[in-house]
Amino acid sequence: MSLRDDAMKVRENAYAPYSKFKVGAAVRATDDIVHQGCNVENIAYPEGTCAEAGAIAAMCAAGGSRDIAEVYVIADSPTPVPPCGGCRQKLAEFGKADTPVTLATVDGAEFKTTIGDLLPGMFDASHLVRT
Rank of each mutant, 00 (worst) to 15 (best):
M1L: 10
S2A: 07
L3W: 07
R4Q: 09
D6E: 12
D6T: 12
D6V: 02
A7E: 07
K9M: 03
K9N: 01
V10D: 06
E12C: 00
N13R: 08
A16N: 07
P17R: 07
F21N: 12
K22D: 08
K22V: 02
V23C: 11
G24K: 03
G24Q: 03
G24F: 03
A26M: 00
A26P: 10
A29V: 04
A29N: 00
T30L: 06
T30P: 02
T30V: 12
D31M: 06
I33Y: 03
V34H: 01
H35K: 03
H35R: 03
C38S: 09
C38V: 00
E41I: 07
Y45F: 14
P46E: 02
G48A: 06
G48W: 02
C50K: 14
A51M: 05
A51S: 15
A51I: 09
E52T: 15
A53W: 10
A55E: 10
I56G: 01
A58P: 08
C60T: 13
C60A: 12
C60R: 14
A62V: 08
G64A: 03
D67G: 03
V71Y: 03
V71C: 10
Y72Q: 02
Y72F: 14
A75E: 05
A75P: 06
D76C: 07
S77A: 14
P78R: 06
P80H: 04
V81W: 06
P82R: 04
P83D: 06
P83Y: 01
C84D: 10
G85T: 00
C87K: 05
L91W: 07
A92W: 10
E93M: 13
F94S: 04
F94V: 10
G95K: 12
K96F: 12
D98M: 02
D98P: 03
T99S: 13
T99M: 11
T99W: 11
P100I: 01
V101K: 02
V101I: 09
T105V: 00
T105A: 08
T105N: 06
D107L: 10
G108P: 08
G108V: 09
A109I: 08
K112H: 13
D117R: 13
L118I: 07
M122E: 13
M122I: 10
M122Q: 14
F123G: 09
D124Q: 08
D124L: 05
A125L: 13
S126A: 14
S126M: 03
H127V: 04
H127W: 11
V129H: 11
V129F: 11
R130V: 12
